[in-house]
């Protein structure tokens, strides 16, 4: 029993150190994440990368169940800002590998369930609203820095 336990601990340690090693090295397979329109997230890209799903899930319930339309995180705004244009200069749908969501989700091999119901292409009215927002130069610079990190 003791021996079994020790082997188990050793295995966990091994896996852990492998993960550590993976973090330091830069893989050539790492995705090229498309840049977005609009202001950068004040929370930072790392935070969004980890938590976007929780934030979206949390705020979607507020909007859908309680009718709160002033939420901070909504999928249609994500999609409007993060639209990627195809060769025809039109936003691509999630069918394309270039779609913002797919770039990381393909890399992480995590299935996205959103687009069976939600449109993966931006709502044209919403894009107009968002691009009209004033973006300070400093914020833009910060954003570009964050994106190229």
């Amino acid at each position: 029993m003791k021996r079994l336990f020790a082997t188990f601990l050793l295995l966990i340690g091994l896996i852990g150190s492998m993960a550590q090693a993976g973090e330091d090295a830069t893989s050539s397979l790492y995705p090229v994440i498309p840049k977005a329109a609009g202001a950068p997230h004040p929370e930072g890209n790392d935070f969004m990368r980890i938590n976007h799903k929780n934030l979206l899930k949390h705020d979607r319930d507020l909007t859908m169940r309680l009718g709160d339309r002033e939420v901070k995180y909504s999928l249609k705004e994500c999609i409007a800002c993060h639209a990627v244009n195809g060769p025809d200069a039109q936003p691509v749908s999630v069918k394309s590998e270039k779609h913002f969501c797919r770039v990381c989700h393909d890399y992480a091999a995590v299935k996205v369930d959103c687009f069976q119901c939600h449109n993966s292409k931006p709502d044209p009215d919403l894009v107009k609203q968002l691009t009209m927002l004033p973006v300070k130069d400093r914020e833009l610079a910060e954003y570009l820095e964050g994106a190229s990190q």
Partner: peptide, 25 residues
């Protein structure tokens, strides 16, 4: 140059939890 890993541990869990607490009820 170090790229941000996709599996960076959750840095600020309390942020999400606080929002949950305030807004969900």
């Amino acid at each position: 140059m170090k790229l941000p890993a996709l599996n960076t541990p959750l840095r600020d869990l309390s942020e999400v939890d606080r929002r949950e607490f305030f807004k969900a009820g």
